[in-house]
Structures are given as structure tokens and as C-alpha cells.
Amino acid sequence: MWIRRCDRDWGSLANCRHTFHPYIEGVMERTYTDHQLETIDRKPFVYQDRLYDQYQATQKQREIERSIRKQKRIINSMSELDSEEAKKAKQEAAIRLRRLNANYRAFSERAGLPLQRERTKVLY
């Protein structure tokens, strides 16, 4: 029996980097016990009146990271302008950025996910 580490069919495996290896029942030792497999995912949790499972939590964390990058880009673009409107917009974006960072920390802590600050950096 072959264990496939990709949930796609053979035709789409060109660049997925998953591996295939044989598993012989009774001869080879299992990597995880049944109990470990049952408890491998974190339990669902509630944050701001919404229930999240582990996958949804990672997706919400990515959403917050995208919002943080967006606010940083707005702040950077407003820094180039010298008008009063631009300064006011920059201040509002800075306030939103502080709130997003606080939300990012709180959500990540509640979900048990590590903060990944490299994902919030703006490179251009």
C-alpha cells in the first residue's frame, strides 16, 4: 500500500513537493498513534462571537496580515504628499494600523498561533 501525501490526483502533482512512500502494515512503525491523530488539531475557539477552527484561524490571521500591509502602504503613500488632507489621512491610517496590530496580537494569542511579523512587512 502506498501512502500519498497529497490530496490531489496524479495529474496535478508536478510541483506540489509532496512525497510518496510505501507503508507495510505490521512491518513498519506508524509515525502517529490513533490518539495523536485525533487530537492533532487544536480545539475550536470563540473570538469576537465567532467560532474558529484551526484552518479558519490561520485564514483569519492571513486576512489581518493583509490589512496591516495595506495600511502600511497607505501610510507610505501619504508620506509622499504634503497636503493637509494627506496628513489627516495618514493619521487615520496610523490609528487603524495600531488597532490592527493589537487585533493581530490578540487573535494570534487566542488562537495559539505564533506572530509572524515578517508577513506584515511592506517591501516596496
Rank of each mutant, 00 (worst) to 15 (best):
M1F: 11
W2F: 08
R4D: 13
D9K: 01
D9L: 04
D9W: 07
W10L: 12
W10M: 05
S12G: 09
N15P: 00
N15V: 05
T19I: 13
T19F: 11
F20M: 13
P22D: 12
E25N: 07
V27S: 08
M28P: 00
R30K: 15
T31G: 00
T31W: 13
T33D: 05
T33A: 12
D34L: 12
D34M: 08
H35P: 00
E38G: 04
I40F: 14
D41T: 06
D41S: 08
Y47V: 06
Y47T: 04
Q48I: 02
R50Y: 03
R50H: 07
Q56I: 04
Q56N: 08
A57S: 12
Q61H: 02
Q61C: 09
Q61L: 11
E65T: 06
R66L: 10
R66C: 02
R66Y: 08
M78Q: 13
E80V: 12
L81C: 06
D82G: 15
S83P: 00
E84G: 02
E85K: 05
E85Y: 11
A89H: 03
K90S: 01
K90F: 00
E92F: 04
A93C: 01
A93E: 04
A94G: 10
L97R: 02
L97G: 01
R99E: 15
N101K: 09
N103D: 11
A106D: 12
F107V: 02
A111Q: 06
L115K: 01
L115P: 02
L115N: 05
Q116D: 15
R117H: 13
E118C: 10
E118Y: 15
R119H: 12
R119F: 08
R119N: 14
R119V: 00
V122S: 10
L123G: 01
